[in-house]
Design a protein around this nucleic acid. Sequence first.
DNA 1: TGCTTGACTTAGACAATGTCTATCGTAGGA
DNA 2: TCCTACGATAGACATTGTCTAAGTCAAGCA
Lengths: 138, 138
Amino acid sequence: MSDLLERLRGRGWRLTAQRRVVAEVLDGDHVHLTADEVHARAVTKLPEISRATVYNTLGELVSLGEVLEVSTDRRAKRYDPNAHRPHHHLVCAQCGAIRDVHPAGDPLSDLPDSERFGFTVSGVEVTYRGVCPHCAAA
Amino acid sequence: MSDLLERLRGRGWRLTAQRRVVAEVLDGDHVHLTADEVHARAVTKLPEISRATVYNTLGELVSLGEVLEVSTDRRAKRYDPNAHRPHHHLVCAQCGAIRDVHPAGDPLSDLPDSERFGFTVSGVEVTYRGVCPHCAAA
DNA sequence: TGCTTGACTTAGACAATGTCTATCGTAGGA
DNA sequence: TCCTACGATAGACATTGTCTAAGTCAAGCA
């Protein structure tokens, strides 16, 4: 994580306590947190941190490419610190659990020119839907 | 569209003026409308239709499998009347335009068991991102 | 070390989207 | 035609995210 802080510093970031805390939260073992969850965890470390700051900081991390935004449902964006390895997501339709997955093949190459309608296609997101073992057992 | 109305009737739907109007709007040539856009168009045909009714009706159409929910951004769900032919979506990152696309290959078969983590995988959504010709020219 | 400055943070209002509830209306069967 | 359960309605409410104006502070510089 100090890697991340150093990288950010190198990009001209002012290193404030709030930003440090947000980075720490994302570095924990819980992945795919919502902005609100990030805020909740950040508050336990720095009670006076505001919601706007968390949103701002997450937005900055995303635009710097350090964190990915994931939109697997309409409820809330989730933030995926695993930005440096391309991957897709597998989502439980019942409990919302998310796993990173690495399918074979490249969906981009599956889209022929005739299906691109003149678009400059730059990326693709794949979301698998299913039921996780825990929900299936219940 | 009368097809659709007949199908719905066959499923025990009560055929009200409001539901008829929502179905008509979806049957128009504009695809991928948001709930709000559907409401706006419905109001021109039936001024007293309420927002809740549009939401309810769309939700019912979705659960009946007559319409697909599409979530290409965090702004709003969109409703895709093209539910009977499997397809994916190509979205302009600038203006939000959406096209239906039919890529080759089947992403489901690209996900090996070792990457399923015990999930029962039932579906997959693929969203291509890019810039449409119109925005590229601007 | 002690200023200065502009970037950062804050609280809270606001906006957009969607959901819920209590009440009223009506489609369709008897 | 009348009844009744299902559907529609208005509007409050919830959630998520954005914006603004004012205060605060990290980092560079003397």
